[in-house]
């Protein structure tokens, strides 16, 4: 759950600079090229984190996206405050700053010939944490998919459950998975796309139970944090531990797909659903 420390907003570091420094190989890339290359490093193929609206633009046909439930904002069931002050203030400031109502946006849109329901998490929103608003938006999106018999596509990016909503956040894991079980019963496709990072309570709920699990290269995927594991077992962990590639080798990810190919991959994959 150490996502608070690891939050790196590259745009904030070099807001108007001409150069983008690759967070992985530290190469200096022209900003124009970085954007044109959809935030993938042309030198080392590092897939940088992306905002949820950028992802929608990348995957959904222009002009076809219809957003659901953007009135659902964070609640504060515990009246929670920590060393930095009230959670309610922090959450409201995040909504205002990012212009999204929660750590996920949901809606329907077209991918080629198929109308799909899609949910995209955003790591910039309190570490993409899963809380009541997130769970509710995902559940409502799945229910929409069932009502209109659409495939459901979930893009995860999260440090896990949001501590500030305590047990209510934990219960969102059960809530979202109950929704997935309804998709299963309805015989509708569930495609899970894991993006960097997908850890903690999100990995241990809906992210790894797709009909097909897809990940971007290099994505961090894991249940427990690296440091916690090292402290528990008192061993150094392999370098590729908890990467998308590691998960694929161990049988939990079906395919690693580069960002530039993701939409055509999805279009092709969805064509295999005959009815």
């Amino acid at each position: 759950m150490g996502w608070f420390e690891k939050k790196v907003d590259t745009e904030a570091i070099v807001p108007d600079a001409i150069w983008q420094v690759c967070p992985s190989c530290k190469a200096h890339i022209m900003k124009d090229e970085w954007v044109k290359n959809i935030k993938v490093c042309p030198k080392c193929n590092y897939h940088d984190r992306m905002g949820c609206r950028e992802r929608i633009k990348l995957l959904i046909d222009d002009g076809t996206f219809r957003e659901f439930n953007d009135h659902i904002v964070p609640s504060d069931p515990l009246n929670f405050s920590d060393a930095k002050g009230p959670y309610a203030e922090k959450a409201a400031a995040t909504v205002k700053k990012l212009g999204i109502s929660e750590s996920v946006i949901t809606g329907s849109g077209n991918i080629g010939n198929t109308r799909v329901v899609i949910a995209v998490m955003d790591f910039r929103f309190l570490g993409g944490s899963l809380a009541s608003g997130t769970g509710e938006k995902i559940l409502l999106a799945v229910e929409h998919a069932i009502r209109f018999k659409r495939p459901f596509i979930m893009l995860s990016a999260s440090g896990g459950a949001r501590m500030h909503e305590g047990i209510i956040s934990l219960m969102q894991m059960a809530k979202t998975c109950a929704a997935v079980s309804k998709l299963e019963k309805a015989g509708l496709p569930y495609i899970s796309i894991l993006t960097d990072p997908t850890t903690g309570g999100v990995s241990a709920s809906f992210a790894l139970i797709g009909d097909v699990n897809i990940a971007e290269p290099g994505t961090l995927i894991g249940f427990a944090g690296r440091r916690v594991i090292e402290q528990t077992i008192k061993q150094k962990l392999p370098k590729d531990f908890q990467t998308a590639e590691y998960l694929k080798t161990h049988g939990f990810v079906d395919h690693i797909v580069e960002r530039k190919n993701m939409k055509s991959f999805l279009e092709n994959l969805l064509s295999y659903r005959l009815k």
Binding site: C177, S203, A204, L208, F223, A224, G225, V228, I229, H250
Partner: peptide
């Protein structure tokens, strides 16, 4: 759930989900 190397390798997150 146990936070271990092998637990991760065998899919702790998937098992719970």
């Amino acid at each position: 759930a146990f936070p271990g190397l092998e637990a991760e390798a065998r899919g702790q997150a998937e098992a719970i989900g």
